[in-house]
């Protein structure tokens, strides 16, 4: 599949989702189900995209697991977005260092 065709398809779809409710269909959504559904969508899709994919995103499952555990612990303690992200990166570096040198 042509890369630019893919990028265009993604961009147009995302733009229309944002544009149409701002221009053509401007009535508020009354259905409580639809509003609840849309409220929960980000959490569901971010979770599904992260796990178990994170385990296979690094050289070994161990370092992927280390990244996940570090991120969850840091996020649970309320650390900022960038701290959590860098923390999980460091966990990967350290784990892979130990795996290759020990």
């Amino acid at each position: 599949m042509n890369l630019y065709l893919c990028i265009a398809a993604m961009a147009v779809t995302t733009y229309l989702i944002r544009l149409l409710p701002m221009t053509l269909f401007r009535k508020p959504i009354r259905s409580r189900f639809v509003r609840s559904f849309l409220h929960y969508v980000p959490y569901a899709c971010l979770t599904a995209m992260t796990f178990p994919a994170i385990l296979n995103s690094t050289e070994s499952v161990l370092s992927g697991l280390a990244a996940l555990v570090t991120a969850v612990v840091l996020a649970f303690r309320g650390k900022s977005l960038i701290t959590v992200a860098l923390g999980s990166s460091c966990a990967v570096l350290l784990t892979e260092f130990f795996i290759t040198h020990i």
Binding site: T58, T70, A71, K79, V84, A85
Partner: peptide, 14 residues
């Protein structure tokens, strides 16, 4: 590889 994990870390943070 370590940098690539950042995005997952951010998803967890969200």
């Amino acid at each position: 590889t370590a940098l690539g994990v950042m995005l997952y870390g951010m998803f967890v943070a969200i």
